[in-house]
Design a binder for these strands. Structure first.
Lengths: 179, 179, 179, 179
DNA sequence: AATGAATGAGGTTTCATTCAT
DNA sequence: AATGAATGAAACCTCATTCAT
């Protein structure tokens, strides 16, 4: 990890831990044990730093694969999917980014788009899983689209807000809808 | 509406429209057509202003009633419930507060608690509606708890993030689960 | 004591307790349980308040008599004189004024003059006592002027700075110089 | 002399010339031909600046030696001592500090302690001189302790307040007490 | 690759003061 | 006799930024 990357991550950490408004070049330089002025070697301006944060994490998200082994049982499939999502959302670095976009999505279009991308990712992957399990008669949902929408909204909130225990929810979901 | 209240609301508007970090006494005074110094007649400090914003809206939320006429059809009941929720979340003043707590809920414990209160409100009211309609055999859900959890998470996101058209979702939900 | 007088004394108290720089109309109004604006009923400006403080205490000092019963013993005479001085310097109100002029005597000519007046008062009264006791052969000082200068400087500092126990000093002085 | 030191001394000058309450970052920056903000490169806050002033001068005072050549005549000894004291108290920089502690000694414990240190320095050095001259029968004082207390109080006031001509006083003192 | 020194703009806060009531 | 509401100036402080080195 080079210096620039390190700065980007520290900046994102400050945003997660103290809030977007508290990310200042002073606080960042202090956390990096360097001088404010030195940050200008890596970034043209604070705006450039913010752009770099977005770009860095957006690229990072391009590499998020999703593959499911459908030979497994429904329990195992959902458990694998959840592990996958959890690894994304609670990754030490990425959790900073998610906090950033949650704070800024109502203000900043780029944050809005990124938040949406995560939301849609969960949604499409959920729909895929539920749809296939439906086809194989392992799950009985009255409407794949409606149920997967509800499912993904619930999972998304569980991951982002920790408002709910996702494991428990999935267990309940399965016992409610599996055949 | 007295002057203090007016200031609180304008401050919340700035937070919704420009972001928490852009609420400055200058911007607020400008929006109020008054001098920065005059704000100190009403508030001891910016922190006190923030506290007052929270307090004002928390009190405001104490008066949010919820009653449903269960003699209506499921469609009408959900439609009424949604209107009720929409009137809460899109109220000109309250929408500012909701934006504030969404921006700050990961940073500020008070915002977190308030966001949670809204979340739990939707959840318990959803559960009540779904449960009663289930008892009356107007709705057929495999598990009231699981389905109402999913339902409320979806509605909550629709209201807060406008990530989804709530009307359409409810129509789909009904056609999927009604008998 | 009328309201104006009360304000003057409270102002002087603030100066003694918190320092000249901390006397503000806000702090004064708070201590008086009144509004800042109300102070303008009694004083034209803060400068006028300061002038009034000086004037009030300067007039107060005009009434400070000094008479000694020279039929008493030297011990009793000095003890009486010291009591007199102490009553002046540690008077609850006047001690505020003395603190004011000590803080401001290097900056403010009026404070300087008032401080000087106290200093000269102690000096002339000391000289009178020492001189008369010398004439009556109850005290043996090599030079009335020199010794009374030293005596009064010492007493002045003891009273103002509490750098020294005046009683102890006077006992020592008497045992050193009495016949 | 580095920049930080220069700022400290200019600040002390303002306090001496205009009073403690008139030391503002604006006035200081103006005197230094720099921007207010630049002062924060050197000091964390105004309080830190004040602390630095105290620390700077307290360290400065650690190096104040005092040695007397007792082979000289009493006149010469006192004259040397007075020159020494005068050089301390009227040193261009240190006089600022002395003015500061005189203004603040009733308010600020640190100023009080520093003022006391000067007072005790004069006192102990006076006592040393008077005591040795007494032992050598060049001075005839009835009580070394009492007379040196009075002497030092007088000298201290002369130096700090210029309430008295120290040379004249010392001449009088010698003609009164020398054998 | 990094920094020490500086800055102008703008932030929060406090001040003495005013004025209608 | 007193106050509620407001204000302009100036206080302290922080911000992103620059520039020579």
């Amino acid at each position: 990890m080079d210096r620039k990357e390190e700065i980007i991550i520290r900046a994102a950490e400050i945003i997660r831990d103290e809030g977007y408004d508290r990310l200042t070049l002073s606080s960042l330089a202090a956390k990096m044990n360097m001088q404010k002025a030195s940050l200008y070697y890596y970034f043209d301006s604070k705006d450039d730093l913010m752009d770099s944060i977005y770009t860095y994490f957006e690229e990072d998200c391009l590499h998020l694969g999703f593959s499911v082994d459908f030979s497994l049982s429904p329990e195992e499939i959902f458990s694998t999917a959840l592990s996958h999502w959890k690894s994304i959302f609670s990754d030490r670095k990425r959790s900073c980014f998610i906090s950033l976009i949650e704070q800024r999505k109502e203000i900043d279009e780029r944050a809005f788009d990124d938040a949406n991308a995560f939301y849609l990712m969960i949604q499409s992957q959920s729909e895929a899983v539920i749809s296939i399990l439906g086809e194989r008669h392992l799950l009985d949902v009255p409407s794949v689209k409606t149920v997967s929408t509800m499912f993904s909204n619930t999972i998304y909130n569980a991951l982002v807000n920790e408002s709910l225990d996702a494991e428990v929810f999935i267990r309940d979901f399965l016992s409610a809808f599996s055949l």
